[in-house]
């Protein structure tokens, strides 16, 4: 196991504050105005073989609905320890969510992918609505989700 991944395992989240070889990354998720109530979002990372690496953010406070973020839930079994300190309110339609995290340099250009699961009340589940490889070159390029996310972009 790589030393940095060992660190991830200890902190459970992928943020490594205070480590020199990390940089602040701003993740911006714009939601389309699909006309529904607040959306639950899970932002998390998988490694090159598709295994769960860690979570970055979970928007939505009621844990009873987390199972509808089905990919994230499947990988974590809904474990609360994966999201301690990195949860916030659900995001309204047409609004945007901005999260800043100190991400290790070694996460980029190493086969890691960022996933976003999304779900809204009485609407379809949208697991892995966004899946993009974490690359230095990909920063600043907006991508569109399948159902709820009009644009997602990460910037250094």
């Amino acid at each position: 196991m790589k030393p940095l991944l060992a660190l991830f395992a200890m902190t459970t989240a992928l943020t490594v504050p205070g480590v020199a070889s990390a940089r602040p990354v701003t993740l911006t998720t714009n939601l389309s105005n699909y006309g529904g109530s607040g959306i639950y979002l899970a932002l998390y990372v998988t490694d090159s073989s598709g295994n769960y690496a860690g979570s970055l953010w979970l928007a939505g406070r009621r844990s009873r609905y987390y199972r509808h973020l089905s990919d994230w839930f499947r990988m974590t079994n809904g474990s609360r320890s994966q999201i301690n300190g990195i949860t916030g309110a659900s995001v309204g339609a047409g609004r945007s969510l901005t999260v800043t995290a100190d991400l290790a340099d070694s996460l980029f250009d190493a086969g890691y992918s960022l996933h976003i699961d999304a779900v809204a009340e009485h609407r379809r589940e949208s697991p892995s609505e966004i899946v993009i490889p974490l690359t230095t070159a990909g920063a600043g390029t907006a991508v569109r989700g399948r159902s709820y996310i009009s644009a997602f972009v990460y910037n250094f």
Binding site: R62, S63, R64, R67, F73, R74, N77, G78
Partner: peptide, 14 residues
């Protein structure tokens, strides 16, 4: 809603 009841519907482990 406020999770005061142990009534969460849990899916089986994957």
């Amino acid at each position: 809603t406020f999770s005061l009841l142990p009534d969460e519907a849990m899916p089986p482990n994957f």
